[in-house]
Every structure is written in C-alpha cells, then in structure tokens.
C-alpha cells in the first residue's frame, strides 16, 4: 500500500488542500449565514421568522447531493453557470448554514433570560446585549454541536467529487480507476479523512475545556 501511497502523494497533497479549503471555507460562510438565520428566527418580526423557518426546512430537508447537483447542473439551464469549486462551496455553505443556525439558536435560547434583563436594566440596547452578553455565552454552549457540524462538513466535501472538483474522494476514484487498486486507494483516503477529523476533535475538546476552566 505504501508504494501506492507514495505514487499518489503529489495528487493527494493538492487534494487535501482542496478538501480542507472547501470544508473550512464552507464552515466559515455557513457560520456567518447560520448566525444571521438564527437571529432572524428569534426576531420579533414575523416575516423574518418565517423566512428563517423556511430556509432551514428546505436546506435541512433535502439531500446535500441534490443541492450540489441543482447548483452545478440545474442552474445553467437558467443561464447561471458556476464553476465546480464555487458550486460546491455554495452548496456546502447553504447546507451547513441550515444546521448551524439551529445550533446557534439553541445556544442563544439556553442563555438565561436574566442575562438579557441585567443588560437591559443598565440601559444596553438589543444589539449590544446580543453581541456583548448573549452570543459569547451562546457560542460556548453551542460549541459541541458546532464542532460536530464542522466534522460532518469535512466528510460532506466528498460529494463535491460529483461535480468534478478534484478533492480527496475524486483523486481516490481516479487513481483507483487507473491502477485497479480501489480497495487500497479508498482505505488511504478514508484514513486521511479520519486523521483530519481527529485533529479537529482534539481542537474542539481543547477549546471546550479551556472555556469551561475559565468560566467555572
């Protein structure tokens, strides 16, 4: 297996960067969008709440693969042509935002009402209270599910292979096809995914214990 690994190494190196780049950027965009959707979901304005509810319902309720295919193969029929990597990034971000918004919302809801009231009682407005008092505590509560989401997202990037993005899974397919050593190739790539996610898990655990040490 080692000879195959060494032969594949140049391609794998690039592919790992694409996978990581795709996963982390989608996570970042998904966090920003997800936070906005979470805020819309708890807003006092009914249309905003309704929009957020529909968004989550659609993007969480349909397969990510369908979303990717729609964006890459479906949209060109309407004159919107997006190249492979941006297509995958867009789909992954929209999909992640749906889940992350629910993680953030549950974090915000878990912050006691008294925290809002104490800030209001000193004359703070809604946004200041949100950003200075509630969100820092909500993020800490939301950290475990958000970490899980990042790991899930890393694995979901493999679906980008269906729209010709040359990431880990695509490289495994290609090399498997040329060498007929599918078993070994997919084992190698599977191990790389596992390794990436193991590092992320350790990072999340460290962050969790670091934060809980500070606050309690």
């Amino acid at each position: 297996m080692l000879d195959l690994f060494l032969r594949a190494l140049p391609l794998l190196e690039k592919a790992v960067l694409v996978t990581l780049g795709l996963g982390l950027s989608a996570f970042f965009c998904g966090c920003v969008l997800g936070l906005l959707i979470a805020l819309a979901r708890i807003s006092p304005f009914r249309p905003l709440r309704w929009f957020a509810f529909s968004y989550v319902s659609i993007f969480r309720g349909t397969p990510l693969l369908i979303q990717i295919l729609l964006i890459y193969f479906g949209l060109p029929s309407y004159g919107i042509v997006i190249s492979p990597i941006p297509s995958a990034l867009l789909a992954l971000s929209l999909f992640a935002a749906a889940y992350l918004s629910e993680n953030f919302r549950s974090g915000i809801m878990a912050v006691e009402k008294g925290q809002w009231e104490a800030a209001w009682a000193m004359g703070m407005g809604y946004w200041k209270t949100l950003f200075r008092i509630v969100l820092p505590q909500a993020f800490r509560i939301a950290l475990p599910p958000v970490g899980s989401r990042l790991i899930g997202l890393m694995k979901d990037t493999s679906l980008a292979s269906t729209v010709t993005v040359v990431e880990l899974t695509r490289v495994a397919e290609q090399l498997g096809a040329t060498t007929f050593r599918y078993m070994e190739m997919f084992l190698i790539v599977g191990a790389i995914y596992w390794f990436i996610n193991q590092v992320l898990t350790i990072l999340q655990t460290w962050l969790e214990s670091h934060l809980s040490k500070r606050y309690t």
């Binding site: 006691e112 008294g114 009682a121």
Partner: peptide, 13 residues
C-alpha cells in the same frame, strides 16, 4: 436607575 436581581444575573463570561 439600577436593578439588583434575586438570581444575581452576573454575566457568566
């Protein structure tokens, strides 16, 4: 004005 609450409501972070 200022308020002191039964459950303190100190900012936990």
């Amino acid at each position: 004005t200022a308020m002191v609450f039964q459950s303190f409501n100190l900012f936990g972070h």
